[in-house]
């Protein structure tokens, strides 16, 4: 296919199968993603997109198949392991704790501790976290005047921005965005696409899930189409138009893969 094959993928999935009880959500799914590449993951409702990224992030464990990061086969015992490996995920169903402050959410699961004995006793450095949260968000282009307020006091779009900011701020290798433009107006959506492009420039591998096909076509390098838990097409974005992509998703025009 492309020259990309000669490099080691940052992230590779091989033959992933996943069941929820008797429902088969993923069937023999294999994908590769490379540094500095944006992949679009598309498919109808229930096609298995969210299930796939939950396998990558360690929320779900596949029934069979392999997760390989930087050429090394990995096994996640919890999302903690994937985070430690530099993979950040923005979940479709909110990954924020609404009753905690914005700052606490940015640092959720990796709380900054106070220095010295207090830190070893588990005391959190709340002020430090609020300050750094501001900086981290600003670094990825999200400005907020105060991080002490709880997330429940924000609008849906504001929450989404905080969640994106958190994922981008912490990502080292791979960033997964499951419908990040949900709840966002046109202007904010455009900002998110800019954020994705800048992540690519920083050399991150981006997995972008969206139902907005123009967005996918605008920002991605390659598109993977899922249908009923299977990969039905994996091709460079340049090979698609909105119409052909829609046909592939719905299965109405079976173009050769």
């Amino acid at each position: 296919m492309t020259i990309a094959d000669e490099r080691t993928p940052v992230l590779e999935l091989r033959n992933i199968t996943l069941h929820y009880g008797s429902v088969e959500a993923l069937h023999d799914v294999s994908i590769k993603s490379y540094a500095g590449e944006v992949i679009g993951l598309v498919g109808d409702n229930g096609a298995g997109k969210s299930s796939l990224i939950k396998v990558i992030s360690g929320v779900n464990t596949a029934d069979s198949g392999e997760v390989i990061v930087d050429g090394v086969r990995r096994h996640w015992r919890s999302p903690h392991d994937s985070m430690a490996a530099g993979i950040e995920t923005l979940y479709q169903d909110s990954g924020l704790a609404p009753d905690l402050s914005i700052g606490s959410n940015i640092f959720l699961g990796r709380e900054k501790r106070r220095s010295g004995l207090l830190g070893r006793l588990g005391f959190v450095d709340q002020r430090g976290m609020e300050r750094e949260a501001l900086e981290q968000l600003a670094r990825v282009g999200i400005t907020i005047p105060a991080t002490q307020r709880t997330v429940s006091e924000l609008s849906g779009g504001q929450r989404q921005a905080v969640a994106i900011g958190r994922a981008i701020a912490w990502a080292k290798h791979v960033i997964i965005l499951d419908e990040p433009t949900n709840h966002l107006g046109a202007r904010q959506s455009a900002e998110v696409l800019k954020v994705i492009k800048s992540a690519r420039e920083q050399g991150l591998s981006v997995l972008f899930i969206s139902h907005s096909l123009p967005h996918v076509l605008e920002v991605t390098d390659r598109i993977i189409v899922l249908r009923l838990g299977r990969v039905v097409r994996d091709a460079p974005t340049s090979e698609f138009t909105v119409e052909s992509l829609l046909g592939t998703i719905t299965g109405l025009n079976e173009s050769p893969s």
Partner: peptide, 15 residues
């Protein structure tokens, strides 16, 4: 607090 506020978010954050 995180677990009581959103158990999924807590788990997804590696807690």
């Amino acid at each position: 607090f995180a677990i009581g506020s959103n158990e999924f978010a807590a788990r997804a954050a590696g807690i």
